[in-house]
Design a protein around this nucleic acid. Structure first.
Length: 870
RNA sequence: GGGCGAUUAGCUCAGUUGGUUAGAGCAUCUGACUUACAUUCAGAAGGUCGAGGGUUCGACUCCUUCAUCGCCCACCA
């Protein structure tokens, strides 16, 4: 059996990406195995795979493949989210190109277009996930607007409505004038903007010479003012309270009211009150029974209540109002002012606080068990600090505005009769029965996209239907995500889980970093700095993409193209090492009967590599269980490359004819590809198919069985000494410019107790370091014209004749001795410190004493060598 | 205005209850056409662990102050 000379990752990637899906190897059904379920953030149907997805899905796939191999019935539910506003925006852009808009097209035809769009592009990201090897349960692929899912959404709405947790109310909400819909607080992203604070004079009605000056960041809203407020304790304005001012430009008379909310220290200490356009003003308006004047249309254009400004866009009106105030002498001044401005999280338009009738969910009761779950440790965040972020939000939770004035989504299951009485029901029939009439009108609005996302962990298993899947796969185990959607999604899933399933949706929440470019900027299409994962797959391979991402994953990842070479090189290394082994191991050994038996070997290198294999396996399993993937990868990399390839495969180069060598080599390779598979699935799957054509795919094999007793510290130590000696010889060659081809004689000076272990391995040292004679002696070796190296208690002496420059060697050794002396002296000082002796634990002191002796020994040795060098 | 995180080799990152000689990969330098791999092999060099102070026998690790960068939250117009 031979592998192709060149590792063609493109073929391998395509072959297995297809096979895994077609053979349906990732499908899970309720069974007698324990379940392991992860909750994947369903990507938007608008999405194409970006680096963040690639990282997120790789992390998930590692644990999933690991758990699958470890005997769990693993379910990773794939799917997409309808992403209401985002998707509608995309299709609206198409319409705009055609010179029309959704209002011209009409609701039903627009929905048809949206569905058609979903049909055409909805699978894009799913197909891309397949290419990077995400081992999802593909036949279960879900969509948040599937029929059964929609049923769950309505069930939840009606249920919460009946419990009194959903209500309708007229409030100031975040309004996106571009999308023409309400947004939740979370959907309005605040960022600091350099703006200005405009000071405006409002003259008193009875005494126009006197006036009160207010300050505002949104001058145009003055058109809707219905009062001015001052703090009742503010002496400056004591006389003004109860009086009236004339609103400039509008010539309306409005009262001056006292309100505790006003901070005398800010601005002028007097606030214009615009109840229809500011949440605080709205509250003040309620307290003082002020009228609400809405001056703006849904698209941000001034309406008939804005007087002569009607028909002008809000920012346009802002300028005009300021100009007119200046012209009429009401303008006082404008000063720079930085403040946070809300932006639509989908289209980035400036969000307008807007008075509107919307549906809300009362969140406090839902938050209670969700807080409890994290407090008691039933749900854990990794890293744990994110718990604080979650808690802070949960404990200060505010009601959730869930209605959206768009068409793409779950239509609110509420019907109104002729008098406007609402009936929340699963179907129109049901509503008709409740209403006692067939003349009903359904609410025009749809639900926030997250109102369906938060049901994902159980709605995807056909809740509310009671079924085996749901019983078996709920609750789930882990969730992996970036921090951005902790509030949007993670927190709400926990609440929904407790409210509707009576149990948490997952136990571990793993928050990973954000992928940034080499300069630390977020990768984004608009910046043009985004690396396309599929391009990387094409150029470096899917394994390289995965391996390199994890290799670089600390907090946030700073990624540039070169970073993917690590993964590509490693995959190539795996390929070639496998090729070497497959070339040298006969079929009867490779296909042997006793596949489960660890081969016996009595040579040091064989025992060593097996010991290293199991040391690594143990550490890797442990690291994966603790979500320390980059650590696991380093362990694997170090083992495979530095132990297996650089030493073991080199050592056995001339002993391939031995049966035990063949067995060890093929065993180590088999166990290695299993161990590496979660991280680097494509190349390992391919190699496995050559190693074991008849045992089914590697992804369904069992995780290597641990053999604790084969971890042999003594063997590893012995081998390490051998390695150190060989490295020392190579080092001497490099220092004195002696070709590896030129044989050398060496003498190893060792105490009696160290000789036994060495004698058996001299042959190994000789062949690896190209040594002619290798003497092992307890006597001191002659140092004339020789290079010297110390390896622990051993001394290596290499006579070099004319190759050596004695003065240079003296200089080199002197430098070393000085360094050793420095260490020795500081150690000695520490060991003579009574405090240290008294307070440090005995084993630390003991270790230090041993080390001091060793150092003293080394210093003596080198000094004597220096004396005798000649 | 609050809260959080980061700062370790030229670059990207490790460093698990404080234990002394701080580790990788890439890049750099030197050498190698060795029949698995030049996406390779052998060797080397490179760090007062952001700054100051403190706790301790001992600090990259714990506390504190500061600096720089980044993130999140917040209805001060």
């Amino acid at each position: 059996m031979e592998l192709e000379k060149r590792f063609d990752f493109k073929n391998v990637d395509a072959k297995w990406a297809d096979y895994w899906v077609e053979a349906n190897v990732f499908h899970a059904e309720p069974s007698d195995k324990p379940a392991y379920v992860i909750t994947i953030p369903p990507p938007n149907v608008t999405g194409i795979l970006h680096m963040g997805h690639a990282l997120n899905n790789t992390l998930q796939d590692i644990i999933i493949r690991y758990k699958r191999m470890s005997g769990f019935e693993v379910c990773w539910m794939p799917g997409t989210d309808h992403a209401g506003i985002a998707t509608q925006n995309v299709v609206e852009k198409q319409l705009a190109k055609e010179g029309t808009n959704r209002h011209e097209v009409g609701r039903e035809p627009m929905l048809e277009r949206l569905w058609a769009w979903k049909q055409d592009y909805g699978d894009t990201i799913i197909n891309q996930l397949k290419k990077i090897g995400a081992s999802c349960d593909w036949p279960r692929t879900a969509f948040t607007m599937d029929d059964n899912y929609s049923l769950a959404v309505r069930r939840v709405f009606v249920d919460l409505y009946q419990k009194g947790l959903i209500y309708q109310g007229e409030r100031i909400i975040n309004w996106c004038p571009r999308c023409r819909t309400a947004l939740s607080d979370e959907e309005s992203e605040h960022s600091d903007k350099q703006g200005s604070l405009t000071h405006i004079r409002y003259p008193l009605k009875d005494d126009p010479d006197k006036s009160i000056v207010v300050a505002t960041t949104r001058p145009e809203t003055m058109l809707g003012d219905t009062a001015v407020a001052v703090n009742p304790a503010d002496e400056r304005y004591a006389d003004f309270i109860g009086k009236e001012v004339v609103l400039p430009l509008m010539h309306r008379t409005i009262p001056i009211v006292p309100d505790e909310f006003v901070d005398p220290a800010f601005g002028t200490g007097a606030v214009k009150v615009t109840p229809a356009h500011d949440p605080n003003d709205f509250e003040m308006g309620r307290r003082h029974d002020l009228p609400l004047i809405n001056i703006m249309n849904e698209d941000g254009v001034m309406n008939e209540h804005a007087g002569k400004y009607e028909g002008r866009d809000r920012f346009d009106a802002r300028k005009a109002v300021v100009e007119d105030l200046k012209a009429k002498g009401f303008f006082v001044k404008q000063e720079d002012h930085t403040h946070a401005v809300g932006h639509c999280y989908r289209c980035h338009s400036v969000v307008e606080p807007y008075l509107s009738k919307q549906w809300f969910v009362k969140m406090e009761p839902l938050a209670k068990p969700a807080i409890e779950a994290v407090k008691t440790g039933k749900i854990k965040f990794h890293p744990a600090r994110w718990e604080k972020v979650y808690m802070n939000w949960m404990e200060n939770i505010r009601d959730w505005c869930i209605s959206r004035q768009i068409w793409w989504g779950h239509r609110i299951p509420v019907w109104y009769d002729a008098d406007g009485n609402p009936f929340a029901a699963m179907t129109e029939d049901e509503a008709q029965q409740m209403a006692g009439t067939t003349v009903l009108r359904q609410d025009e609005d749809v639900l926030d996209t997250w109102f369906s996302s938060w049901l994902w962990p159980f709605a995807t298993f056909n809740w509310p239907e009671d079924n085996e899947d749901l019983k078996f796969f709920y609750p789930g185990d882990a969730l992996f995500t970036a921090s951005e959607i902790i509030f949007f999604w993670v927190a709400r899933m926990v609440m929904a889980g407790y409210e509707f399933m009576g149990d948490l949706p997952f136990k571990d929440v793993f928050i990973h970093g954000t992928v940034r470019d080499a300069k630390g900027r977020k990768m984004s299409k608009s910046l043009g700095n985004a690396l396309d994962p599929l391009e990387i797959v094409d150029e470096y391979g899917a394994d390289a993409l995965r391996f390199s991402l994890i290799h670089n994953s600390g907090q946030d990842l700073y990624i540039s193209k070169d970073n993917f070479e690590v993964g590509r090189n490693f995959a190539n290394k795996i390929w070639n090492a496998s090729r070497l082994i497959l070339m040298n191991v006969p079929d009867e050994v490779r296909l042997r009967e006793d596949k489960s038996v660890v081969p016996d070997t009595d040579d040091l290198a064989g025992q060593w590599i097996i010991s290293r294999l199991y040391s690594t396996l143990k550490a890797v399993s442990h690291a994966i269980e603790n979500y320390r993937y980059s650590e696991a990868e380093n362990l694997i990399y170090d083992f495979f490359w530095n132990n297996l390839c650089d030493w073991y495969l080199e050592i056995i180069k001339n002993q391939w004819s031995e049966a035990s060598t063949q067995k060890v080599a093929v065993w180590v390779l088999e166990e290695s590809v299993k161990m590496m598979h979660p991280f680097i699935p494509f190349v390992t799957e391919e190699i496995w198919s050559h190693l074991n054509p008849d045992q089914g795919p590697l992804c369904r094999q069992e995780w290597p069985k641990m053999h604790e007793q084969l971890i042999a510290p003594k063997i590893e130590e012995q081998m390490q000494t051998v390695i150190d000696i060989i490295v020392a010889v190579r080092n001497i060659r490099a220092t004195w410019n002696i070709s590896p081809k030129q044989g050398l004689d060496i003498t190893i000076t060792a105490e009696e107790r160290d000789q036994a272990g060495l004698t058996e391995n001299l042959e190994l040292i000789r062949s690896r370091a190209n040594i002619g004679r290798c003497d092992l002696t307890a006597e001191d070796a002659p140092a004339q014209n020789s290079a010297t190296a110390l390896i622990g208690r051993l001394k290596l002496t290499v006579p070099l004749g004319e190759h050596i420059d004695v003065d240079a060697e003296k200089k080199r050794l002197t430098k070393k001795v000085d360094e050793l002396k420095r260490n020795h002296d500081s150690l000695e000082k520490r060991l003579s410190n009574e405090n240290f002796l008294a307070k440090a634990p005995a084993d630390v002191v003991g270790k230090e004493q041993e080390r001091l002796q060793a150092l003293a020994h080394e210093v003596r040795e080198l000094e004597s060598v220096l004396d005798n060098l000649g």
